[in-house]
Design a protein around this nucleic acid. Structure first.
Length: 290
DNA sequence: CGTTGAACCTGTTTGC
DNA sequence: TGCAAACAGGTTCAAC
């Protein structure tokens, strides 16, 4: 469910009610997707949630030992959550029966429980001490919404790799997934199989602008709900109604009415307009020619 | 460096 | 109707 816009909307929602709450106790279910479940059970009880932030697709709950109320700055440690494909995080009344596949429950001091639910368990949960936070943040690439175009170019230009693979690489750019990669490439009129090193300067600029505009528009629409995404209040997003290519195979392009196609690029379903997004001359990895 | 395919796990949709 | 295959918002790792 989760790419940058969905995580951002969720983080904003969590930030409306979590800061200042204290974690009373922890209950874990299946823990095979957690880095160190014992540390989570040991460290979290008694800590206060200072604030909720986002880094790429990760949710970072800043935790603090002290009694001083928080503005989110200066956390002593953090609970870091990645939603994978099907993860959900929400605060529910403690008396409410947990949804199926709820694997973590954090009892709060206001009668609610912060619950993590994830049928496929492709998500990730870890606890990081303050000293480990900078290294964690550095593993993730630039933030699309708060970084300059020149920083983006520096990370992309000249690299001998497919542009789709680069945009999906979280060490290059933090937050883009399959939906927003396809949507951005369509807006920039760049074929997903193009090589980054072959992009012209104008194309790089168009791509950067497309990424930012798509992400900002998606956030304004509350994110995309393709199947089961819900925000902190349990509400779906609406940006899926504005998708131009994602899951629109065989439907007409919004610009030229050509039929949208779907091929596999970088191991992922990739949707594009064959007319607006011209294929590179030398197609990579073709079968024998006839 | 780069690419591909498989693996991780469950649920839903599609096809025969 | 029933069962199998395909597919899914993500990441990681082995192999080449």
């Amino acid at each position: 469910m989760p790419e940058l816009p969905e995580v951002e909307i969720l983080v904003r929602g969590l930030n409306r009610s979590l800061p200042g709450r204290r974690i009373l106790s922890v209950r874990l279910g299946k823990t095979d997707f957690m880095d160190n479940p014992a540390a989570i059970e040991r460290e979290l009880p008694g800590l206060k949630i200072a604030g909720v932030a986002r880094r790429g697709k990760y949710i970072v709950l800043g935790l603090r030992l002290g009694a001083a109320d928080g503005d989110g700055a200066g956390a002593d440690s953090a609970l870091v959550v990645h939603l994978g494909m099907t993860g959900h995080l929400s605060a529910r009344p403690a008396g409410e029966p947990p949804a199926a596949h709820t694997h973590a429950q954090f009892a709060l001091d206001d009668g609610r429980e912060l619950r993590y639910t994830d049928p496929r368990r492709f998500g990730r949960i870890l606890w990081l001490a303050q000293e480990a936070l900078p290294a964690f943040r550095n593993e993730i690439g630039i933030e699309p919404l708060t970084t300059s175009e020149s920083a983006f170019s520096a990370r992309i230009a000249g690299r001998h790799a497919g542009i789709k693979a680069l945009l999906l690489n979280q060490r290059v750019l933090g937050g883009l997934g399959n939906i927003y990669t396809d949507e951005s490439l369509w807006r920039a009129r760049i074929h997903p199989q193009r090589l980054a090193s072959r992009l012209k300067r104008a194309e790089m600029r168009a791509l950067w602008r497309a990424i930012r505009r798509v992400l900002e528009a998606a956030i304004r629409s509350g994110g995309s709900t393709v199947s089961d995404y819900r925000n902190a209040d349990g509400q779906p997003g609406w940006f899926q109604l504005r998708h131009r290519v994602y899951q629109r195979e065989g439907k007409p392009c919004f610009r030229c009415r050509s039929n949208i196609r779907r091929i596999v690029v970088a191991g992922r379903s990739s949707h594009f307009c064959p007319q607006c997004q011209r294929a590179p001359r030398k197609r990579r990895f073709r079968g024998p020619t006839s």
